[in-house]
Simulated scan of single mutants.
Amino acid sequence: MEKLHTVGELSKMAGVSIRTLHFYDVNGLLKPRSYTAAGYRLYGREEALRLQQVLFYRELGFSLEGIKLLVDEPGTSLLENLRRQSGLLQDKGKQLEDLQKTIQKTISSLEGKIEMEINEYYQGLSQEKIDYYRSEARRRYGEETVRRSEEMVVKMGKTKMAELQAQGQTIFEKMTKNIPNGPAHRESQELINKWRIWLENFAHYTDEGLLGLAIGYRDDPEFKAFFDKIHPELAAFIADAAGVYFKKST
């Protein structure tokens, strides 16, 4: 008889939160096999494999809506999805190799060993994404703001950049834990203020610009895909909390 696992057990094995599994259930991405008499979710091998599919596609940058379409695609078997993912991962592997080379080259540049042109910072990213990111930044914040931001990052140095990345990750993780409290909660508002201060290390924003950035986290597919990897509700939470914060500031 097949052993079934509780939501807590599956959560630990897959490295995702119980809240995420609950979210996947509600949104039809991963339904449990059955429930205990007390109403607790139970998962078997089939559900574990489906979760693997979901997580693989998340790592590849697909939206939750897109993943549901792919794993539920009529006539497409689990093996076909795995072969598709294998091909995508091979392409991703090549891209990651290119990105690693760019990172090492940038480190050497920041250490003063070599010189780099601005366009070299983006080698390994698809040209489509490069154009998208930079054009969106120019559209939202202007050419001069983008130029100053790039200069700030270049002058920062790898140690400072690593510290700031860790700070940002901590802020977003604390925001995730605070989602149940709601966007208007005191701690939520304190975290938005910390986020605002943190962003000043990369560029100088107006209140309107920061609110636009927060809304972009929620509404822009590229931004949302990044935050969905941390928590599927995080992008919307930041947008809502920023809306409360800047309303109070005016």
Results as ranks from 00 to 15, higher is better:
Glu2Phe: 13
Lys3Cys: 14
Leu4Phe: 04
His5Asn: 13
Thr6Glu: 13
Glu9Asp: 07
Glu9His: 01
Ser11Gln: 03
Ser11Val: 00
Met13Glu: 10
Ala14Gly: 06
Val16Tyr: 06
Ser17Arg: 04
Thr20His: 05
Thr20Tyr: 07
Leu21Trp: 04
His22Cys: 04
Val26Tyr: 09
Asn27Asp: 14
Asn27Trp: 00
Leu30Lys: 02
Pro32Arg: 07
Pro32Leu: 09
Arg33Ala: 12
Ser34Met: 03
Tyr35Cys: 14
Gly39Glu: 07
Tyr40Arg: 11
Leu42Gly: 05
Arg45Ile: 15
Leu49Gln: 07
Arg50Asp: 00
Gln53Phe: 04
Val54Lys: 10
Leu55Cys: 00
Leu55Val: 11
Gly61Asn: 04
Ser63Asp: 05
Ser63Phe: 06
Glu65His: 08
Ile67Leu: 02
Lys68Phe: 01
Lys68Ser: 04
Leu69Glu: 15
Leu70Cys: 01
Glu73Asp: 14
Pro74Leu: 09
Gly75Val: 09
Ser77Glu: 08
Ser77Lys: 03
Ser77Asn: 00
Leu79Gly: 00
Leu79Ser: 02
Leu79Ala: 05
Asn81Gln: 09
Arg83Ser: 10
Arg83Lys: 08
Arg84Lys: 06
Gln85Cys: 08
Gln85Thr: 01
Ser86Cys: 11
Asp91Glu: 02
Gly93Cys: 03
Gln95Tyr: 03
Leu96Thr: 02
Asp98Val: 07
Gln100Cys: 04
Lys101Asn: 06
Thr102Ser: 07
Gln104Ile: 03
Gln104His: 05
Lys105Tyr: 12
Lys105Pro: 11
Glu111Gly: 01
Glu111Thr: 05
Gly112Thr: 01
Lys113Leu: 10
Glu117Gly: 07
Ile118Gly: 10
Gln123Asn: 06
Gly124Asn: 06
Glu128Gly: 09
Lys129Val: 15
Ile130Lys: 03
Arg134Tyr: 13
Ser135Arg: 08
Glu136Trp: 07
Arg139Pro: 04
Arg140Val: 09
Tyr141Arg: 09
Glu144Trp: 04
Thr145Ile: 11
Arg147His: 14
Ser149Gln: 12
Ser149Arg: 00
Ser149Cys: 04
Val154Glu: 02
Lys155Val: 15
Gly157Asp: 02
Gly157His: 06
Gly157Leu: 05
Lys158Asn: 13
Lys160Trp: 08
Leu164Lys: 04
Ala166Gln: 11
Ala166Trp: 13
Gln167Met: 06
Gly168Lys: 09
Ile171Gly: 02
Ile171Trp: 02
Ile171Lys: 12
Phe172Ser: 13
Lys174Glu: 15
Asn178Thr: 00
Asn178Cys: 03
Asn178Lys: 13
Pro180Cys: 02
Pro180Lys: 01
Asn181Gln: 14
Arg186Asn: 12
Glu187Leu: 06
Ser188Met: 12
Ser188Asp: 01
Gln189Leu: 09
Gln189Gly: 01
Leu191His: 07
Ile192Cys: 05
Lys194Cys: 03
Trp198Val: 03
Glu200Ala: 13
Asn201Phe: 15
Phe202Ile: 12
Tyr205Gly: 08
Glu208Tyr: 10
Gly209Cys: 14
Gly209Tyr: 07
Leu210Phe: 14
Ile215Asn: 02
Ile215Gln: 04
Gly216Ala: 02
Pro221Asn: 14
Pro221Lys: 07
Phe223Cys: 13
Phe223Gln: 10
Phe223Ser: 11
Lys224Val: 05
Ala225Tyr: 05
Ala225Ser: 13
Lys229Ala: 09
Pro232Gln: 07
Glu233Asp: 13
Leu234Cys: 02
Ala235Phe: 11
Asp240Phe: 02
Gly243Phe: 15
Lys247Phe: 05
